[in-house]
Amino acid sequence: MGVTGHQQSLITARDVGLVACTSCGLVAHAADHVCSRCHAGLQSRDHKSLQRVWAWLIAGLIVYVPANLYPMLRTTQLLKTQDSTIVGGVVDLVHHNAFAIAAIVFIASVVIPVGKFLIIGYLAILLPRTQNKDSHRLHKLHSAVEFIGRWSMIDVFVVAILVALVQFDVVASIKPGPAAACFALSVIFTMLSAQAFDPRLIWDVADQGKPE
């Protein structure tokens, strides 16, 4: 691969006094504020990014609480109404012996959101503090969170489909509960939180600790 310099001495755009466009990859003079090719805003490092990460993460955590406490689905069958929360829905699926589907829902609505909170928090705490970190691992964690976060939305779509399909008046009907909206908001906020990271900060931190 035609890299400037040798593999051991990779050069960043900032090292040579230039600024890179994160939208299209073109390199511009440090004084430029707008990319000449794609018109995106230019910034060598987004030092305010961590503030935005924390803000969205906290917002996501706040709405995640009612998302788990309130019912996701309100099923009415022959005048009997039954509420089920996110975890309750998984338990129901296990009782119906649908283990594979239960696993999908459990992973999408419990494991991924909780894992996402932990990983984003971990990255946000670690980034400004450490001198010599394994950037490759942190970068993989960040990419994984960005890639997988949107899949939490599965449960919201399940609720939407059930609500639309099961409408047989008194015999059986399903209505959405407040948790559906809270959970959707939580997913949106944590997606924004993951996107707010400037991944270049991960690599800068590593370089500072490296011997020349």
Partner: peptide
């Protein structure tokens, strides 16, 4: 280097590459 499309800077880590 500046504005030369043969150079691509990585959006994730800022590493500068020169491509043929």
């Amino acid at each position: 280097v500046a504005y030369n499309p043969a150079y691509i800077a990585c959006p994730h880590c800022d590493t500068l590459h020169r491509f043929s």
